[in-house]
Design a protein around this nucleic acid. Structure first.
Lengths: 127, 127
DNA sequence: GGCCTATTTGCGAACCGTTAGCAAATCCCC
DNA sequence: GGGGATTTGCTAACGGTTCGCAAATAGGCC
């Protein structure tokens, strides 16, 4: 059965992700690895990202250009505020949204099951 | 200067989009056109979609698989509730979100400039 | 420490949605 | 109907992502 190995590429990628609180593409991570002389194949980066996602340690976002990007991320339900200048990601809880469920039901007969929210602006350092 | 032509492919695609209130991929639209014997090149579908987007008549969304999908859509600021069963899209105004700006500023020093929201659930017909 | 087997990696080719180049067709206006 | 700008169709290229398979690695066991 599926025993899980801790390998060098996985350790490196996990470290990079928890250090950089920004959405990074697979190619960007691959680039950072090269910069520190670590030879890891791009396909390994993709597979590791998929693996970390399955473990709930990373969440993914597809940017408007269609490129998938990744941040390290605790598992519980929350949203992200993304700085347009430096890319920094802040965790946002928004219980405010639950309230909208009632309005959707009343106006459209729509039963709300889930939602996705992203905030864009400037973080404290870039304001 | 850029005079704008109304052509057969553009008319067909506009009609399909305003008829189907669901997010459709370029390939899906191309398929619908074929089904009605209209011969339009896939690249024309892409160009028309880009054109309609620029005119503010269509809005795009990149699905988790990275495929871009399109709906006809009025210009003013609102969000979409997407039925998970039939794909139907309802327009949702959510002034409730404006309130979150204050909390973001207070907790993280984050200056909110914009947001993106999507709701998922079941529409009245599919509930 | 060395061995064994399942897991993971690296490489390259394949894939798929999307974009670009260019000649032919189309639209609009006079 | 004629003429010039815009749009289309076709095909090839592109960029990100996935896949297949043999070589390398992790980790338990003697």
């Amino acid at each position: 059965m599926a025993t899980e190995y801790v390998t060098r590429p996985r350790a490196l990628i996990s470290r990079i992700l928890s250090g950089e609180r920004r959405y990074l593409s697979a190619a960007a991570i691959h680039g950072l690895l090269e910069r520190e002389q670590a030879k890891v194949a791009l396909s390994t980066v993709y597979r590791t990202l998929e693996h970390l996602q399955a473990k709930g340690q990373v969440s993914a976002r597809v940017d408007p250009a269609g490129e998938t990007t990744y941040v390290s991320c605790a598992g519980d339900h929350h949203h992200h505020a993304i700085c347009r200048v430096c890319g920094k990601v802040e965790d946002v809880d928004c219980s405010a949204l639950e309230a909208i469920g009632g309005a959707l039901k009343a106006h459209h007969g729509f039963v709300l099951e889930d939602h996705a929210v992203e905030f864009f602006g400037r973080c404290s350092a870039c304001a």
